[in-house]
């Protein structure tokens, strides 16, 4: 394969990864706060629709971007309101909001434009600009890959780095992590758990909203019904694999971007389209299983080490192997509970 073709393949990987990265970051901040974000899907859908609408009304692509961000934040805050203030079950609330958003965005599109499937014919909206990096023009592969990407593709990488710094080093970030691991500990030193949850959902919504804006004002230039198509869930998987580490979540999202890009390439060949469309989701399941197996293996090794340490002490039997099976199941039962089980078993 020529350098040019590799370059353009990687270009499309980055482009396709962008919404996945935002979704992954949206899930990552929630994971750090001990929350399970299934609603990135909704945040993105509303971000995509409102972005296009505001852009169409005002004629400004930047106001459209801002509108999309706000829509994401509002969606996040709605979940916080329902679950923190209203004490609703987190999973059920998110399922409800996902179903409501899927129908709600189409309804709003219909009310505003009279069209039930796309805004392409009725709303005049633009795309966010692509950025030319002339100095990269002559670098092989890298130049083709990085040059002329959408503004938000660079934004996604920047967002991952900023989120990392925020979580690791800022006071609020430290508090979010403390709440995520041991809410009682946080509460006991005066950190308000419910305020932290609200803030987390707002940031998560912002990131999801930007991901949505990219879908309708970067990846394409109009809103189409259900255009997010499961990207929120793929982002959630990416984040779960690395326990919410933002940089890791970004890299995982890029792995899924690769499978997306391969699927796109295969569509040009004679391969059956439906099968190819399935590829990114099938990859998700396979990667999740592999990660889970690795986690269980390392956990078993840790227990064995502990057991042999205990064995070395006179008078104490090597117990703990059978006892720790429960915590093992804790890991196997869900990527999100793994962090919790790991934390509490100490």
């Amino acid at each position: 394969m020529s350098a040019l073709r590799i370059g353009s393949f990687l270009y499309s990987v980055l482009r396709l990864s962008t919404p996945l990265i935002f979704a992954a970051l949206s899930a990552a901040i929630c994971e750090k706060a001990g929350l399970f974000n299934m609603a990135a899907e909704s945040m993105m859908l509303w971000g995509a629709l409102i972005g296009v609408m505001v852009n169409g009304w005002t004629g400004s692509v930047w106001l459209g971007f801002l509108g999309g961000c706000c829509a994401g934040v509002v969606t996040g805050l709605l979940i916080a309101l329902a679950t923190v203030k209203g004490k609703a079950d987190l999973m059920l609330a998110q399922i409800a909001i996902n179903l409501a958003s899927s129908g709600g965005t189409i309804f709003m599109l219909y009310v505003v434009t009279g069209d039930k499937s796309t805004s392409a014919m009725t709303i005049k909206s633009q795309s966010l600009p692509k950025i030319a990096l002339p100095f990269l023009k002559n670098v092989p592969v890298i130049g083709r890959m990085l040059n002329n990407q959408n503004l938000l593709t660079y934004g996604a990488i920047l967002a991952a780095i900023l989120l990392m710094i925020f979580i690791k080093r800022s006071r609020t970030g430290v508090h979010i992590r403390a709440v995520g691991e041991n809410p009682n500990a946080a509460e006991s030193v005066g950190i308000s758990v419910s305020k932290t949850y609200f803030l987390t959902w707002a940031i998560s919504g912002l990131l999801g909203g930007i991901g949505g804006v990219f879908m309708s004002m970067g990846y394409t230039s109009a809103f189409t019904k259900n255009m997010v198509a499961g990207r929120g869930y793929i982002g959630l998987c990416a984040s779960s694999m690395v326990r919410g580490n933002p940089i890791g979540a970004m890299l995982c999202a890029m792995v899924f971007g690769v499978s997306d890009a391969i699927a796109n390439q295969l569509q040009l060949t004679n391969a059956p389209v439906d099968l190819v469309m399935m590829l990114p989701y099938a990859v998700t399941i396979i990667v999740l299983i592999i990660i889970s197996v690795i986690k269980i293996r390392t956990h078993v090794r840790k227990i064995k080490n502990k057991a042999s340490q205990v064995k070395d002490q006179p008078g104490i039997l090597p117990a703990g192997l059978s006892l720790s099976l429960d915590s093992l199941y804790g890991i196997a039962s869900g990527p999100c509970s793994a962090a919790a089980a790991g934390g509490s078993s100490v």
Binding site: E181, A185, A186, V189, V346
Partner: peptide, 21 residues
């Protein structure tokens, strides 16, 4: 029952909520 955040360091736990900036 200890009120600690297991993945954080001793210093982070001790200064949680009163971190110098």
């Amino acid at each position: 029952h200890f009120m600690l955040v297991p993945s954080m360091t001793v210093a982070q736990n001790v200064t949680l909520g009163i971190e110098p900036r």
